[in-house]
Design a protein around this nucleic acid. Sequence first.
DNA 1: CGGCCAACATACCACCGGTATGGCCGCGCA
DNA 2: TGCGCGGCCATACCGGTGGTATGTTGGCCG
Lengths: 198, 198
Amino acid sequence: MRSRREDYSESTRSALVDSAVKLFTKRGYTGTSLDEIARRARVTKGALYHHFSGKQALFEAAFDAVESQVHGKLDKILRGDEPPWERALRGLREFIASCLDPAYQRIAIHEAPVVMGWQRWREAEDRYSFGLIRSSLEDLIAAGEIDHVNVEITARLLFGALLSAATEIANSAEPEKVGSQIEDGIVHLLHLVRRRPE
Amino acid sequence: MRSRREDYSESTRSALVDSAVKLFTKRGYTGTSLDEIARRARVTKGALYHHFSGKQALFEAAFDAVESQVHGKLDKILRGDEPPWERALRGLREFIASCLDPAYQRIAIHEAPVVMGWQRWREAEDRYSFGLIRSSLEDLIAAGEIDHVNVEITARLLFGALLSAATEIANSAEPEKVGSQIEDGIVHLLHLVRRRPE
DNA sequence: CGGCCAACATACCACCGGTATGGCCGCGCA
DNA sequence: TGCGCGGCCATACCGGTGGTATGTTGGCCG
C-alpha cells in the first residue's frame, strides 16, 4: 500500500520538474531562477533543495524527462514489425518531428552540453536518441541494406547533421517546407549509401 | 598621427578580450566572473564596462576574435589557386583542425548558441565558417564537380556533421586516430556525391 | 597652462544559488 | 488512541556576481 506521504512527495517532485522544463524552455538555464521554478510549482526553494541537490541536478531531471519522452516514441517505431529500411525512415521522420518540440530542442540539444558538460551529455545521449540512431544503423547493416561502414563515426555524423538540421527547421519561417527539404536531403544521402540489389 | 590615448585604450581593450577568451575557454561563460576577467587584464570592472556594454557584449567580442582567426586561415586556403576539389579537401582538413582548438570549440561552437541566442549565432556563422562551407560548395557545383543539390540544406547538414564530429575528435582518447577516421568518413561521403566523369 | 573629456577606479545595489535552521504532519508503534 | 519520530517543506540568511552611479586622473587642445 502506497503511503499518503509518498503521493505528496512524488507530486511536488514532478510539479517541480514540470515547472523546470517549462521555464528552462522559455528562458534558458541561466535565465530562470530557482525561486520562480519553485513558485510556479507552488512551493519554496526549501522543497526544491529537499528533492534535488542543486540547480544542475534539477536540470538533469528536466533533461531526463524530455529525453525519455522522445525515446519512448522512437523506440516504439524502431521496434515495429516493418522492414528495417521503412522502420529507419519512419524513425528519422519522428526524430525530426521531436526536434521541433521547443523543450527538446533547447534543453536536450542546445543547453544540455553546456550545462551538464559535453562528456556527461554524450554519455546520456548514448542511452537516448543517439543510441537509437546507432542501433538502427547496425540493424540496417545486419539486414544488408547498406554497406559495412564505421558505425560509430557514421552515426555521429548523422546525429550532428540531424540536430543542426532540426534547429534550422524549427527556426525557419516555413517549417514544413524546410522540413521536407531536409528530409529529402537526408533520404537522398541514405539512398547513396544504400547497397543496390544486383 | 595616432594619439597616445588611443594606443592605451586599444591595448586595454584587447587585453580584456584576450583575458575573456582564455577564461571563457577554461571555465565557460557562467563559470567566469567579470571581476576575474578584469583582474587578469590588470584593470577593474570599470574599464570593462567602459569598453563593453555588458557580459554578453564581451563574450561576442571574444567570439569574433576566435572566429576571425579561423576564418583567416580557411579563407586563405579556399582562395588558393589549386583545383576546386583539392581546395575543398584542404579546407575541410583545416576546419577540422581548427575545431580542435579548445577556444574555438567551447566559445564558438558550444556556448555561443546558448549565450548569444541561436538566431544571432546563425547570422554570425553566415559571415564566418558556415559561409565559407556554403560558398565552397557552390564553387564545387559551378566547377561541375558535384551534382546540383540544394546548397543551403546540404551545407547545413555538412556543417552540423562537422561540428559534432570535431567535438568527438577533441574529446577522444586518441584524437589523431578518430580524426583520420572521421576525415575518411566525410571524404567517402563527398566522393559518393561527386559527379563521375563519364 | 588650464580646463575638459575620455579612460578608467571605487562604492554600492539587487538578485540569485546555496545553506542552516525551525516547524508541521502523516505514520508507525506501544 | 495517544505520541514521538522523521520525512517534507518553509523561513532566514550569506557570499558572490552582474550591473550602475559616481568619483578621479592624466593625456590632448585651444
